[in-house]
């Protein structure tokens, strides 16, 4: 089952799906395994595993620190692929890789997509790849039947949203506001209007991320988006309250 079908079926069971995020190798690969298991058991619907990069320009302080620490601890692409393989063998929810373009580029786009597919990954999120430059990347994803997840943002023109819609597959990652990951988003009419603009342009499911930090945020998004994405907040929670903190927070959401 591909990502779009999965999310369409999910929609019939739940008001809104939940995607969570972790940075491979942060705080350690061992904690990553336990975090995934906790999240899946708590009922998370899909997860993105971030392959750390030395120049994470779309990320805020929490993620930047996580990327840097993971790299300092020697986390490699191979480690990330191994993590992907293990979790996809064990759990049935879809897992995606999120990373910056230089990582697949240096591995060779086709090679990287092949390895992601073989490890059981369902899609790739590459926030620093503008759609104008994404042709080769998308072709490589299609070759190995994984979904290239493209981003729509409130500053994108209609023309751009249309282009993204034509190129995307799986679902659309909607960026709630300007800026980087982390800081809280003010969930107000502006987000709703933006999501409706996205909805007009694409029939793919919409995931919304950046600054989602509470049950109220997720409730706000129910009915507007298909999936709420909780990234930096999960990592902060993990830092402050450990896996137990993650578990009890997810319990309030699902």
């Amino acid at each position: 089952m591909n990502l779009t079908e999965y999310l369409t079926q999910l929609k019939q069971k739940k008001k809104i799906g939940l995607m969570t995020h972790l940075v491979c190798g942060y705080p350690s690969l061992e904690v990553n395994y336990r975090t995934v298991s906790t999240m899946v058991e708590a009922g998370v619907d899909l997860m993105e595993l971030q392959i750390p990069f030395s120049e994470p320009i779309a990320d805020g302080p929490t993620m930047v620190k996580a990327n840097q620490t993971a790299l300092n601890q020697g986390t490699t692409v191979k480690d990330c692929l191994n993590l992907m393989r293990e979790v996809t063998q064990k759990y049935t929810i879809p897992f995606l890789f999120m990373t910056y373009y230089n990582i697949p580029l240096q591995q060779g786009l086709l090679n990287f997509c092949q390895q992601t597919k073989e490890a059981g990954g369902s899609g790739l999120i590459v926030p620093d790849l503008p759609p104008e430059e994404a042709k080769e990347f998308i072709a490589a994803c299609k070759e190995y039947r994984i979904s290239p997840i493209l981003l729509m943002s409130p500053t994108s023109s209609d023309r751009r949203l249309e282009m993204i819609s034509r190129m995307a597959d799986g679902f659309i990652y909607c960026v709630a506001r300007k800026g980087v990951t982390g800081p809280k988003t003010d969930f107000s009419a502006a987000v709703r209007i933006f999501l409706r603009r996205c909805r007009e342009k694409t029939s793919l499911p919409l995931a919304l991320g950046f600054g989602v930090t509470s049950k109220a945020d997720v409730d706000f998004l129910a009915g507007e988006a298909d999936v709420a994405v909780i990234g930096s907040f999960m990592i902060k929670l993990l830092e402050k309250e450990g896996i137990e903190g993650v578990r009890s927070f997810l319990r309030t959401l699902i």
């Binding site: 990069f53 030395s54 120049e55 320009i57 790299l71 490699t76 692409v77 910056y100 373009y101 230089n102 990582i103 580029l105 240096q106 591995q107 620093d128 790849l129």
Partner: peptide
């Protein structure tokens, strides 16, 4: 050749593409 900081050029990077 690689891509970082919003542009493509020759970067000093390791095998995996980390700067």
């Amino acid at each position: 050749p690689g891509v970082a900081q919003g542009y493509k050029t020759y970067f000093l990077q390791n095998e995996e593409g980390q700067m």
